[in-house]
Write a protein that binds this DNA or RNA. Structure first.
Lengths: 200, 200
DNA sequence: GACGCAAGTTGCGTGCTGTGCAACATTAGG
DNA sequence: CCTAATGTTGCACAGCACGCAACTTGCGTC
């Protein structure tokens, strides 16, 4: 079977999608607190126990899957193969990630609606973002030479990436989903240019 | 009894502190997951039910109480009474908030140790920060004239405040708690100066 | 095609979380 | 004191999260 995708994995992806879709649907309709895992599982055609094989908590199934940047992509960035400066490379990489999420059938707008209705979800989403933060900061620090001096800057740059993506998406929502999400994200990144634009 | 502090409120504060201290202590010693609310409550000399009168979840008792900026302080900022530019004012306000937390007997270093051991706590802390984000962004937007053009910038500025505080504290930890937390936070804020320093 | 292995699903049992409610204790203030 | 307000506690209960063992399904091998 080698490298080919197994039917196994396709089924898992399908189940995962079904669970996420059921969570989003029911959560938007009646509020996430009023929906039990049992109900979500039933709607996805699976047992309650299986739900927890996919997600640790009910909330996790209601988060946008963002910042799925592979170690390989990060290694390319670290090596400086993006060609441009650090900030320009990051702008490109993360805008691309947003585009991927947008095209992924995740239905970003509806997820953001749900998060607007449940602040606890927005908070958890922030938390999930921050789990990517460590990897990103390390990558930036490695590329810019990891000494105590540059480390502070690297952490700030990584944090600003999260901010730019978050604010970009938020503006996209505020403007009624006009244009693409990636465009708004890029615009947010541009505001940091005066501070980080000259970092090689 | 007018404006005087009631013994009532002093007791509540004491209970709150005891519960937080018990959570921190036990969490650091054995890991937060291995500690039940019942045990925390017992150690604080209070019933388990009372714990939930103070905190919604076990994790909430293990978070740093940061960004407790009153509406009055925010109103002063909005009016521009800080005298300096937007970013300078924010730097001052948030450095002062960190100083307050530092002096509050919260024992920031040990909380940060606990968060390092339990990523879920770091994530929740981020979430708590983000609940302050809305108020801050509104304040900045109001001060800079709230049109769609400046709104994006206001959101980015508010987000950067969170980043600066977070990274500043992280650096403070990385350097072995040398100097004060507020100083490191101020240094982190300075990195954003080229981007936001000229905002009136 | 039968076999055996690996991977995934399910039911069961269990401890803990989080909350509403009503009874009780404590404090403030007249 | 007496009363009203405030805070604490016990109780009951639904739901969460997970470990475990049994069962089912799909896949490669002989």
């Amino acid at each position: 079977m080698a490298e080919r995708e197994h039917g196994r994995e396709r089924n898992k992806r399908a189940t995962r999608r079904a669970l996420r879709a059921a969570t989003l649907e029911l959560g938007l309709r009646r509020g996430l607190a009023e929906v039990s895992v049992e109900e979500i599982a039933r709607r996805a055609g699976v047992s309650p126990r299986t739900f927890f094989n996919y997600f640790d908590t009910k909330e996790d199934a209601a988060l946008i899957e963002l910042f799925v940047v592979t170690d390989e992509e990060l290694a390319v960035f670290t090596a400086g193969n993006g060609g441009a400066g650090v900030w320009a490379d990051l702008t490109r990489i993360l805008a691309a990630d947003v585009e991927r999420a947008e095209a992924d059938g995740q239905d970003l707008p509806r997820y953001m609606q749900l998060h607007a209705r449940h602040p606890v979800l927005a908070a958890r989403q922030m938390g999930q973002f921050s789990s990517f933060l460590g990897r990103l900061a390390d990558a930036v620090a490695t590329r810019t030479g990891d000494n105590p001096q540059t480390r502070l800057r690297a952490e700030v740059i990584a944090g600003s990436c999260i901010t730019a993506v978050r604010v970009g998406l938020s503006q996209w929502a505020a403007q009624g989903w006009r244009s693409t999400a990636a465009e708004h994200v890029t615009a947010a990144f541009a505001l940091f240019d005066p501070a980080f634009g000259d970092t090689a």
